[in-house]
Amino acid sequence: MVDGWSCPLPLRDHPRVTLAHGGGGLLTSELVDHLFIPAFGGAAAEANGLDSAVLDLGEGRLAFTTDSFVVHPLFFPGGCIGDLAINGTVNDLAMVGAVPLALSTAFVLEEGLDLEVLGLVATAMGHAATIADVELVAGDTKVVELGRADGMYITTSGVGFIPDGVELGPTQVESGDVVIVSGPIGRHGVAVMSLREGLEFETTIESDCAPLAGLVAAMLEVGGVRCLRDATRGGLAGVLYEIATDAGLGVEFDAEVVPVPPQVRGACEMLGLDALHVANEGVLVGVVEADRAEAVLEVMRSRPEGAEASSIGEMVERRPGMVIARTALGSTYVVDRPLGEQLPRIC
């Protein structure tokens, strides 16, 4: 969350982003030294000004990932583009069982952007990185002309350390494994959509945006975890289809058991959406060995980001690549596979 930001002295001549802020000159340096570094706080303590970050690596393997963030609007209930940019990449690392080590941050800024906005976003990034225990070690800023971007775009890349013995992925999944969801679904998508031009509606729901690396570490400690995915774009349905397809197995789950907050359910009914398709930024899907599932769930529920973790279904031999929902009435239906973004730019 964002606490606030006040413009430091050297930047006050230019309260808005100008093209010169991306020119590589003094203004660029000022932006780095007086906005990003202080805003990132302790998370950027190791930033050294070199072209590449050099990281010590002992045993194990290195995970490396990158993601771009183009959310509109930049601030939404429960977070902002800065939180997403950190947590999104942290979570991508966590899903392969990596302990996130360091992130780079690259900004494309639109000329005219209020520095206060940039400061708030950068501060949120510093907070999020501190909470996720990850360092921000490299960065870049470019500015494009007014009208050529929508405020700002952020790209973060991250590296993480995968301890020996950790091997996660759909190829590890077996028939009979239990499918777990870490928390209530649909909150991020609904929070962002509630502000969208053309469909503003009032909701108290906040984005679930959160780092999941700590939760994953706790799950891995229990053992029996085969595959993890964070249910971002495409929602729960999208992730279940990816796992089913890549594992060559089917997924069957109880539609009634999936945790859907009432506000998300209401918004989806109003907008004609399926909560299973709505994006999350702090929910993971885990596939876990059946006899370890209860122990994993117990550990998850002891943490705030996994407090409402539930077992929703299982992997099955029949109908490989398909995701089947069981209704409370005893019938089944094939879950709709999300085709693409009906409502663009939510992360």
Partner: peptide
């Protein structure tokens, strides 16, 4: 999403019409 063909397409591969 309300179309009969789309509903059938999603439903069909399961072979669970019962």
């Amino acid at each position: 999403s309300e179309g009969a063909c789309a509903a059938y397409f999603r439903y069909r591969p399961a072979g669970v019409s019962g």
